[in-house]
Design a protein around this nucleic acid. Structure first.
Lengths: 120, 120
DNA sequence: CGTTCATATGAACCATTGTTCATGTGTTTA
DNA sequence: TAAACACATGAACAATGGTTCATATGAACG
């Protein structure tokens, strides 16, 4: 019969406590990593990626994007709202029409870096 | 009563057919954009982001990562499998222990670019 | 060999999310 | 001001995904 103290396994302190504590001290704040994951989550959808790539080329209105992607205006509008909340796109009103464009140069960079990994 | 041909709205050809067709011709292949979204989906989870940031600092075994993040060995192992399938991490066996490390320099770059956007 | 320990994996569960459908808002124009 | 149009939004539904639990693999060690 094993000792009571050895019932718990390596997960308590890890096999290499020194490494665990050293790496732990260099980790960014919990909240920062959460926000970073939330950002990538935005990029993690085909429809939104397509929208961003389209806006990379030209400012566009909602129904143009819907037409381009062969999707519903409603579906596109929902996604644009998400992209706007993440500050990845901005919009401008002209009469009845609303034009969307990229909000930030970072979008281009992130897309480009990701693409490089995909294309091996 | 409106003409039958005007029942369908702008989504058919868009408001600016010229822009739609021009942008359409510059879009990467459907499959490429899908793969790109799949890649970002991997980064779009707190646990996986934490694992990647940890491995950025040092090679680690499964139970060390579990200990560092205060999570189950099983949960970490599942996530490591996903990261490995995406070719973001690689592993090496040493006796009973399996050490994981980053597979690619792109990981560092993508994380860095995303972080810059998060920190405004 | 049989046990122990580190890791892997399959099934189940719960939460999250993207699309659709119906409807609401806001702007132009007849 | 009423109709038409571009866009926004809320609720509902189906699908996806992360964690847990139980169990399987695989290697060291007595």
């Amino acid at each position: 019969m094993t000792d009571v103290r050895s019932v718990e396994h390596c997960e308590e302190q890890g096999m290499h406590p020194d490494i665990v504590s050293r790496v732990g001290s260099t980790m960014p704040a919990e909240e920062t990593l959460y926000d970073l994951a939330e950002l990538f989550k935005i990029f993690g959808d085909s429809t939104r990626i397509k929208i961003l790539y389209a806006l990379l080329e030209s400012e566009m209105c909602v129904c143009d994007i819907a037409s381009l992607l062969g999707m519903t205006q409603s579906a596109i509008s929902h996604q644009l709202r998400i992209l706007k909340q993440a500050k990845l796109v901005k919009n401008r009103r002209e009469g009845k029409t609303v034009y969307y464009s990229l909000a930030d140069g970072h979008v281009h960079t992130v897309l480009h870096q990701g693409m490089e990994h995909v294309q091996e």
